[in-house]
Design a protein around this nucleic acid. Structure first.
Lengths: 208, 208
DNA sequence: AAAATTGTTACACTGAGTATAAGTTTTACG
DNA sequence: CGTAAAACTTATACTCAGTGTAACAATTTT
């Protein structure tokens, strides 16, 4: 499957990284809307088309780590043993928090990142869109794990509420960090409230 | 405040309606992505710029009733007496369902509408975006009603979960309608589950 | 009936995103 | 090795959404 990297692949990785780095810098300096793909291509010493090659939409230059989280969840649900799908998901989140997993990294970088996002209507819109598609995916995974049809409303409800919990908890953790309070405690507090809600909502179904 | 309509205003309303009707028809016939603003303008006998005058973004030709629902909620929260904000919201939703309010209309029209939406990635994305901004607005309204800062995480959690409940319940009602089951019952069933979850999540806060 | 408002239009422009074919570099294979 | 196939990059040209501006036309006000 995964052969030794090879010159081509490492060049590709380098090009992709170069474009991403240049774009990130420009976006932070001047804001997402005020940087054109042309500029990014020029600054990265690459053709306009090459940028689109790696990042089909401009927003992908900012958000390009969806797949990572999806894989994490899929994996956790696959290896959940006889635990219920929702509890497996909740256990995963608690573990990620406990292990300080990079996906929940709470420091100055994501703070700056989300500040850049908040400053751009297009990026805020894209973030909402991502939340939506991730919730849809999670719903399908939960339904699948419970052996229900992928459109089961209980799965959709559970997935959406779990996503909300994560988003709100993470946002609150960042706020706590900014205000020099305890981020992990803030995160956990919202997390447990949300989980309590989900468990109550789904009581009596195959998901909890 | 509201003077008699006047020729200008009625012409405006007519133009807007004409554009909207033409666009709706074309979108249903050929799909959102396969109809350009130019075509809509031509078919409506109006300048391209006039279309953008009434509908700043192409997606607004499809979704243009956000404000309506926002007003409904704002109104309910304003006149809630000594009821908690979340319960006032829940009571409103139960009442809208009970009264067969047009906003929760369940028949062939919204079914076709959402089929058109589902067929277009851009429209699905926009629907997610709308869900997000409506949840943000609701959070601000709830926080405001409870006398908390607009960024209160509990308000955000409640608002997001309430939005999810509505979206999933409505989707399930449409599905029930399509499958000739009882839409209202399906709606109510998801609604009450969601509300139970929200109430459990927010227990002990100022919101329930 | 003239003047002031306000909506419509024509024109020109920017920038995202797509299509295609030609040019380069890497890899695979004899 | 050296050549051919595969894969990435590039140039070019295009479509379409969305914005800015100023001229124009219709309505409303006085």
């Amino acid at each position: 499957m995964s052969n030794p990297p090879g010159l081509r692949d490492s060049k590709k990785a380098a090009t992709r990284q170069a474009i991403s780095d240049v774009a990130t810098r420009l976006f932070i300096e001047r804001g997402f809307e005020n940087v054109s793909i042309d500029e990014i291509a020029r600054a990265a010493g690459v053709a306009r088309k090459t940028v689109f090659n790696y990042f089909p939409r401009k927003e992908d230059l900012v958000f390009d780590r969806e797949e990572e989280s999806r894989a994490l969840v899929r994996q956790a649900l696959a290896g959940r043993g006889n635990q219920s799908p929702v509890h497996a998901f909740q256990a995963l989140m608690r573990a990620l928090l406990e292990d300080r997993h990079p996906i929940f990294r709470i420091n100055r970088r994501p703070l700056r990142f989300w500040r850049t996002v908040a400053a751009s209507p297009a990026l805020v819109a894209h973030a909402h869109r991502l939340r939506g598609t991730l919730a849809d995916d999670l719903a399908a995974m939960l339904a699948d794990a419970a052996g229900k049809p992928t459109t089961d409303p209980h799965a959709r409800l559970a997935a959406a509420m779990l996503m909300d919990t994560l988003v709100v908890a993470y946002g609150e953790a960042l706020r706590a960090f900014r205000e020099k309070r305890q981020p992990a405690a803030a995160f956990a507090s919202v997390l447990e409230r949300g989980f309590t809600g989900v468990n109550a909502a789904l009581a009596g179904t195959a998901y909890v």
